[in-house]
């Protein structure tokens, strides 16, 4: 890595730092970080109590980012997220009270409990990276990274995200149960929330933005693009998926692969990078339903049938 603006700290340090809190989940941590570097948003779909919130929190802490959390419920209104203008008698005028989206890392817990209107307000903000309330447009801070969680089991009185909207998330990952060793470690160890509070940032926000810039410029050769395109085409040709990957999904895949290459410390994208992020990026866009594991298995099958160019 001979890029002049490249910071001395590598993102790998971040992964290591988070891994001290979120035990035995390095692949997921890496994917989450890659998602952040690629400038996308992350959807974590798994059972409660497996450390979704902890991961989001740890990510924010190690990167020194401002962190806010919203617990979604069915009466959460868009204004509760975006903020409202409230009349102040003393000023004899409206003053804007920013909602929780005005932060750098937003954890939207159990997003499927929010009403569709609220969901779409959040998705719009995620896409636009700005919020328009009362006719006034306000930029969100940079970087802006949304981690939404979804509980796939408890479906009663919920509004699962429409499949078409899942496209707004760069990746969907599941956390899964920790290994025996990790679980014992969790049981034995001190409360990780305490450790979390004691964490110091490994990367400055400036460095993070630099890394994002490096990611965007990461070299992807023609051969690599051809391979990536073949993967995308494969999803379109197959009858097993309701939707093939869109062009936007292809772009997302490339962005994620670039981020993975940065995490690996390379100066160009390899097919292995594409392969590493492909299940997380593609699985939720193929219309295979909410079962993350099954969808990712289908995505891996595609990987196995397309030759590396």
């Amino acid at each position: 890595m001979d890029d002049p603006i490249l910071p001395k700290t590598t993102p790998t340090n971040v992964v290591d730092a988070i891994s001290t809190i979120v035990l035995d989940k390095e692949p997921q941590v890496r994917l989450a970080l890659a998602c952040l570097l690629a400038g996308g948003h992350l959807l974590i779909e798994d059972l409660p109590g497996l450390g979704k919130t902890l991961l989001a929190h740890a990510l924010a802490r190690t990167l020194g980012l401002e962190f806010k959390r919203v617990q979604c419920t069915n009466d959460l209104l868009p204004t509760d997220l975006l903020g409202v203008s409230i009349f102040h008698r003393e000023e004899n005028g409206f003053r804007f009270h920013p909602g929780p989206v005005f932060t750098q890392v937003l954890l939207a817990d159990e997003i499927n409990r929010a009403s569709p209107k609220t969901q779409s307000a959040l998705l719009e903000v995620m896409e636009e990276r700005q919020s328009t309330v009362d006719g006034e447009t306000r930029q969100l801070p940079r970087p802006f990274f949304v981690i939404a969680t979804q509980n796939p089991v408890d479906q009663l009185s919920t509004h699962p995200l429409p499949e078409a909207q899942l496209d707004r998330f760069l990746m969907r990952i599941g956390l899964g149960y920790p290994s025996v060793a990790a679980e014992l470690d969790i049981l034995r160890g001190e409360d990780r929330r305490v450790r979390l509070a004691a964490m110091t940032p490994v990367l400055s926000p400036k460095e993070l933005l630099d890394f994002q810039a490096v990611t965007a410029r990461m070299h992807a050769s023609t051969a690599l693009l051809a391979y990536l395109h073949a993967l995308v085409l494969r999803t379109r040709d197959s009858d097993r998926f309701r939707y093939g990957l869109s062009s936007r999904a292809a772009q997302a895949l490339l962005a994620a692969a670039r981020a993975w290459a940065v995490l690996r410390g390379g100066d160009h994208v390899l097919p292995a990078d594409v392969q590493a992020v492909f299940p997380a990026v593609a699985a939720h866009r193929l219309g295979l339903g909410a079962d993350t594991a099954k969808a990712e298995a289908a995505a891996r099958e595609i990987l196995a049938t397309v030759a590396v160019a």
Partner: peptide, 10 residues
Amino acid sequence: HMGGDALEGI
């Protein structure tokens, strides 16, 4: 039967 939950708006 889900009417109590499915908030459409105000």
